[in-house]
């Protein structure tokens, strides 16, 4: 009743215009900016030593954060959806806390804990360990910010799944891991995939929290987003956009995965 032939084109065009202004043009300018001084500058920008080091650090953060969060997501979802206990809903809410906290405050928290004047500051100095302004701080801050992503994809899926099939499997004599692998996993694998990819995208791109704890020492504690910031502030726009382009490609990959996953889940 409310679908009028008159409104339809107007509304669609309005939506596209808005999205062009806010999403398409920014994306486009990254591509154009990256190649604004030719392919050679782009290639140099992503392969020069500082860039390589930033990419390397980012990958280190990724391969520590994502597998741990995956394990956390799976165990948390199992405990929170397959069992009923008091405080269950409260814990589900707690998992989302990092969403509600500014990344800058997230970084601040770890400075308070591990900074020179922090709770563990003296102990760390005595033992010649460094967390803040070093890789461990970056990893901790990233882990805090990205904690919810995998769990929050899995919890609704496993909640909807119920426990009947698992209970049947157990009563038929299958063990816990076998039951998980054959009964639970097939239903959540696409959601898990998207959760993992989205978590990776956020881990790669985390800026505020990492910015606080990194100390921004070029070539020592720079991840990719921090490297972009430094290049941009030094007016090396083409180089900044080149690194930005790499991260944008991963973002686009994330979106494509989401589209595929939604289609798969829709068909199931």
């Amino acid at each position: 009743m409310t679908e009028s032939k008159v409104y339809k084109p107007i509304l669609i065009v309005a939506a596209f215009l808005f999205l062009t202004l806010f999403l398409v043009l920014p994306l486009l300018i990254i591509f154009i900016g990256a190649f604004s001084q030719g392919f050679y500058v782009f290639w140099y920008s992503i392969t020069e030593p500082a860039a390589r080091h930033a990419i390397f650090l980012t990958i280190i953060v990724l391969i520590i954060t994502v597998p741990l969060h995956t394990l956390f997501g799976l165990t948390a979802a199992w405990a929170l959806t397959k069992f009923r206990f008091r405080g269950r809903q409260f814990i589900i809410t707690l998992i989302e806390i990092p969403f509600a906290i500014s990344p800058v405050i997230a970084g601040l928290i770890f400075i308070i804990l591990y900074g020179v004047n922090g709770f563990f500051g003296e102990w760390l100095i005595d033992n010649d360990l460094q967390v803040i302004f070093a890789l461990p701080g970056i990893i901790l801050a990233t882990m805090f910010v990205t904690l919810p992503f995998i769990a929050r994809e899995l919890i609704p899926l496993m909640e909807a799944q119920g426990t009947d099939a698992e209970e049947a499997s157990i009563t038929l004599g299958a063990g816990g891991f076998r039951t998980f692998y054959h009964v639970t996993f097939p239903a959540i694998k696409w959601g898990l995939l998207y959760g993992v990819i989205l978590c990776s995208a956020r881990a790669i791109g985390e800026f505020g929290a990492v910015s606080v704890v990194s100390g921004r020492i070029r070539g020592a504690t720079n991840t990719m987003p921090l490297h972009v910031e430094i290049l941009y502030n030094e007016y090396q726009f083409a180089s900044a956009f080149s690194i930005a382009l790499l991260m944008s490609l991963f973002a686009i990959f994330t979106i494509i995965i989401k589209q595929i996953v939604e289609r798969k889940q829709h068909l199931r």
Binding site: I29, F207, V228, T254
Partner: peptide, 26 residues
Amino acid sequence: KRLMDGLIDLPFALPTAVAGIALTSL
């Protein structure tokens, strides 16, 4: 339509610093 649907998620997936420099340049 699918393109539009995908684009909506860009701000979730794109690093904030990248968005920042892109918007500033624009």
